[in-house]
Protein backbone atom coordinates (compact mmCIF):
# COMPACT_ATOMS: atom_id res chain seq x y z
CA UNK A 1 0.00 0.00 0.00
CA UNK A 2 2.86 2.37 0.76
CA UNK A 3 3.97 2.64 -2.86
CA UNK A 4 1.04 4.84 -3.90
CA UNK A 5 2.01 8.47 -3.53
CA UNK A 6 -0.34 11.03 -2.13
CA UNK A 7 -1.45 12.84 -5.33
CA UNK A 8 -2.29 9.52 -7.01
CA UNK A 9 -4.32 8.51 -4.01
CA UNK A 10 -6.09 11.85 -4.11
CA UNK A 11 -7.26 11.28 -7.69
CA UNK A 12 -8.06 7.64 -7.04
CA UNK A 13 -10.34 8.68 -4.19
CA UNK A 14 -12.15 11.11 -6.49
CA UNK A 15 -12.60 8.95 -9.57
CA UNK A 16 -11.96 5.24 -9.24
CA UNK A 17 -12.98 4.85 -5.60
CA UNK A 18 -15.51 7.63 -5.18
CA UNK A 19 -16.72 7.29 -1.62
CA UNK A 20 -20.35 7.94 -2.51
CA UNK A 21 -20.72 6.23 -5.85
CA UNK A 22 -18.72 3.08 -5.13
CA UNK A 23 -18.79 2.82 -1.33
CA UNK A 24 -22.32 4.10 -0.67
CA UNK A 25 -21.17 6.41 2.10
CA UNK A 26 -22.75 9.74 2.95
CA UNK A 27 -26.04 8.93 1.25
CA UNK A 28 -28.47 10.40 3.80
CA UNK A 29 -27.38 14.04 3.59
CA UNK A 30 -26.82 13.47 -0.12
CA UNK A 31 -30.48 12.65 -0.72
CA UNK A 32 -31.79 15.27 1.69
CA UNK A 33 -29.64 18.24 0.62
CA UNK A 34 -29.20 17.72 -3.12
CA UNK A 35 -32.42 19.54 -4.08
CA UNK A 36 -30.51 22.70 -4.83
CA UNK A 37 -27.03 23.11 -6.16
CA UNK A 38 -25.88 25.96 -3.90
CA UNK A 39 -26.51 24.19 -0.63
CA UNK A 40 -25.10 21.00 -2.14
CA UNK A 41 -21.85 22.78 -2.96
CA UNK A 42 -21.71 24.43 0.48
CA UNK A 43 -22.09 21.12 2.25
CA UNK A 44 -19.50 19.57 -0.07
CA UNK A 45 -16.89 22.20 0.81
CA UNK A 46 -17.50 21.67 4.53
CA UNK A 47 -17.13 17.91 4.04
CA UNK A 48 -13.77 18.28 2.25
CA UNK A 49 -12.40 20.38 5.08
CA UNK A 50 -13.65 18.22 7.94
CA UNK A 51 -12.71 14.98 6.22
CA UNK A 52 -9.12 16.01 5.54
CA UNK A 53 -8.55 17.24 9.09
CA UNK A 54 -10.27 14.37 10.89
CA UNK A 55 -8.47 11.77 8.76
CA UNK A 56 -5.14 13.28 9.86
CA UNK A 57 -6.23 13.66 13.50
CA UNK A 58 -7.61 10.14 13.71
CA UNK A 59 -4.49 8.76 12.10
CA UNK A 60 -2.28 10.43 14.70
CA UNK A 61 -4.49 9.33 17.58
CA UNK A 62 -4.78 5.76 16.33
CA UNK A 63 -1.07 5.16 15.80
CA UNK A 64 0.32 7.32 18.61
CA UNK A 65 -2.18 6.54 21.37
CA UNK A 66 -4.41 3.53 20.65
CA UNK A 67 -1.88 1.12 19.16
CA UNK A 68 0.78 1.54 21.92
CA UNK A 69 -1.92 1.03 24.54
CA UNK A 70 -3.50 -1.94 22.68
CA UNK A 71 -6.88 -0.24 22.60
CA UNK A 72 -7.58 -0.76 18.89
CA UNK A 73 -11.09 -1.97 19.61
CA UNK A 74 -12.03 1.44 20.92
CA UNK A 75 -11.32 3.05 17.57
CA UNK A 76 -15.04 3.52 16.82
CA UNK A 77 -15.72 5.47 20.01
CA UNK A 78 -12.54 7.52 19.76
CA UNK A 79 -13.08 8.36 16.07
CA UNK A 80 -16.65 9.47 16.49
CA UNK A 81 -15.77 11.59 19.51
CA UNK A 82 -12.86 13.18 17.63
CA UNK A 83 -15.13 13.97 14.68
CA UNK A 84 -17.89 15.40 16.88
CA UNK A 85 -15.46 17.48 18.91
CA UNK A 86 -13.65 18.72 15.80
CA UNK A 87 -16.88 19.80 14.14
CA UNK A 88 -17.92 21.61 17.31
CA UNK A 89 -14.59 23.45 17.58
CA UNK A 90 -14.65 24.41 13.91
CA UNK A 91 -18.18 25.68 14.23
CA UNK A 92 -17.33 27.88 17.21
CA UNK A 93 -14.13 29.17 15.61
CA UNK A 94 -15.82 30.10 12.36
CA UNK A 95 -18.71 31.70 14.19
CA UNK A 96 -16.33 33.82 16.28
CA UNK A 97 -13.74 34.89 13.70
CA UNK A 98 -15.24 34.49 10.22
CA UNK A 99 -18.92 35.43 10.46
CA UNK A 100 -19.22 35.71 6.67
CA UNK A 101 -18.02 32.15 6.20
CA UNK A 102 -20.35 31.03 8.98
CA UNK A 103 -23.28 32.40 7.02
CA UNK A 104 -22.40 30.04 4.19
CA UNK A 105 -21.17 26.92 5.97
CA UNK A 106 -22.58 27.24 9.48
CA UNK A 107 -25.85 25.41 9.00
CA UNK A 108 -24.10 22.47 7.36
CA UNK A 109 -21.56 21.78 10.06
CA UNK A 110 -23.83 20.02 12.58
CA UNK A 111 -25.03 17.73 9.76
CA UNK A 112 -21.49 16.56 9.19
CA UNK A 113 -21.07 14.73 12.50
CA UNK A 114 -23.58 12.16 11.37
CA UNK A 115 -22.24 11.91 7.83
CA UNK A 116 -21.06 8.34 7.51
CA UNK A 117 -18.56 9.30 4.82
CA UNK A 118 -16.41 11.09 7.41
CA UNK A 119 -16.20 8.12 9.76
CA UNK A 120 -15.93 5.83 6.73
CA UNK A 121 -12.83 7.63 5.44
CA UNK A 122 -11.15 7.23 8.82
CA UNK A 123 -12.00 3.53 8.99
CA UNK A 124 -10.81 2.84 5.43
CA UNK A 125 -7.54 4.57 6.20
CA UNK A 126 -6.92 2.24 9.16
CA UNK A 127 -7.93 -0.91 7.25
CA UNK A 128 -5.68 -0.04 4.31
CA UNK A 129 -2.67 0.99 6.44
CA UNK A 130 -2.19 4.46 5.02
CA UNK A 131 0.60 6.70 6.23
CA UNK A 132 -0.26 10.14 7.62
CA UNK A 133 0.34 11.86 4.28
CA UNK A 134 -1.64 9.25 2.37
CA UNK A 135 -4.51 9.59 4.83
CA UNK A 136 -4.68 13.31 4.24
CA UNK A 137 -4.59 12.77 0.49
CA UNK A 138 -7.29 10.13 0.78
CA UNK A 139 -9.42 12.34 3.04
CA UNK A 140 -9.15 15.34 0.72
CA UNK A 141 -9.81 13.17 -2.33
CA UNK A 142 -12.85 11.49 -0.83
CA UNK A 143 -14.23 14.85 0.20
CA UNK A 144 -13.71 16.22 -3.30
CA UNK A 145 -15.32 13.14 -4.80
CA UNK A 146 -18.31 13.59 -2.53
CA UNK A 147 -18.56 17.26 -3.50
CA UNK A 148 -18.41 16.28 -7.17
CA UNK A 149 -21.16 13.69 -6.82
CA UNK A 150 -23.53 15.87 -4.80
CA UNK A 151 -23.09 18.90 -7.07
CA UNK A 152 -23.68 16.82 -10.19
CA UNK A 153 -26.85 15.36 -8.75
CA UNK A 154 -27.96 18.75 -7.38
CA UNK A 155 -27.61 20.24 -10.86
CA UNK A 156 -29.47 17.38 -12.53
CA UNK A 157 -32.29 17.52 -10.00
CA UNK A 158 -32.71 21.28 -10.46
CA UNK A 159 -32.97 20.78 -14.21
CA UNK A 160 -35.47 17.95 -13.84
CA UNK A 161 -37.62 20.02 -11.54
CA UNK A 162 -37.83 22.79 -14.15
CA UNK A 163 -38.47 20.73 -17.23
CA UNK A 164 -39.42 17.15 -16.53
CA UNK A 165 -42.63 15.61 -15.39
CA UNK A 166 -42.22 12.54 -13.22
CA UNK A 167 -44.56 9.85 -11.99
CA UNK A 168 -45.62 10.82 -8.48
CA UNK A 169 -43.96 7.90 -6.74
CA UNK A 170 -40.63 8.59 -8.38
CA UNK A 171 -40.29 12.18 -7.19
CA UNK A 172 -37.66 12.97 -4.58
CA UNK A 173 -35.59 10.06 -3.31
CA UNK A 174 -36.66 7.64 -6.06
CA UNK A 175 -35.37 9.64 -8.98
CA UNK A 176 -32.30 10.74 -6.99
CA UNK A 177 -31.33 7.12 -6.45
CA UNK A 178 -31.80 6.25 -10.10
CA UNK A 179 -29.75 9.25 -11.23
CA UNK A 180 -27.10 8.19 -8.73
CA UNK A 181 -27.13 4.72 -10.23
CA UNK A 182 -26.50 6.20 -13.69
CA UNK A 183 -23.72 8.42 -12.35
CA UNK A 184 -22.20 5.46 -10.60
CA UNK A 185 -22.37 3.51 -13.85
CA UNK A 186 -20.54 6.35 -15.56
CA UNK A 187 -17.88 6.35 -12.86
CA UNK A 188 -17.22 2.64 -13.28
CA UNK A 189 -15.60 3.66 -16.57
CA UNK A 190 -12.72 4.98 -14.45
CA UNK A 191 -12.20 1.73 -12.60
CA UNK A 192 -8.94 0.00 -13.28
CA UNK A 193 -7.05 3.24 -13.95
CA UNK A 194 -5.64 3.25 -10.44
CA UNK A 195 -5.90 0.29 -8.07
CA UNK A 196 -6.01 1.15 -4.39
CA UNK A 197 -7.82 -1.80 -2.90
Amino acid sequence: MTQIDMPTLFFAAIFTNNILLTNFLGLCPYIAISKNINSAAGLGVAVIFVMTCTAALNHLIYYQVLVPLHLEHFQFIIFIVVIAAFVQVVEMTIDRYFPALYQVLGIFLPLITVNCAILGASLFMIIRDYTLLQSMGYGAGSGTGWLLAITLVGAIREKIQKTGKLPKGLEGPGITLIITGLLSLAFTAFSGLIKIQ
Binding site: G174, I178, T180, G181, T188
Partner: peptide
Protein backbone atom coordinates in the same frame (compact mmCIF):
# COMPACT_ATOMS: atom_id res chain seq x y z
CA UNK B 1 -21.62 -3.57 -8.54
CA UNK B 2 -22.52 -0.25 -6.96
CA UNK B 3 -24.95 0.98 -9.67
CA UNK B 4 -27.15 -2.09 -9.20
CA UNK B 5 -27.75 -1.20 -5.57
CA UNK B 6 -28.80 2.33 -6.45
CA UNK B 7 -31.13 1.14 -9.21
CA UNK B 8 -32.73 -1.52 -7.01
CA UNK B 9 -33.33 0.86 -4.13
CA UNK B 10 -34.62 3.54 -6.48
CA UNK B 11 -37.08 1.15 -8.08
CA UNK B 12 -38.12 -0.19 -4.67
CA UNK B 13 -38.81 3.31 -3.37
CA UNK B 14 -40.73 4.08 -6.55
CA UNK B 15 -42.97 1.01 -6.18
CA UNK B 16 -43.59 1.60 -2.49
CA UNK B 17 -44.45 5.24 -2.99
CA UNK B 18 -46.77 4.50 -5.88
CA UNK B 19 -48.76 1.81 -4.12
Amino acid sequence: MAPGAFFMLGIFVWIVRTY
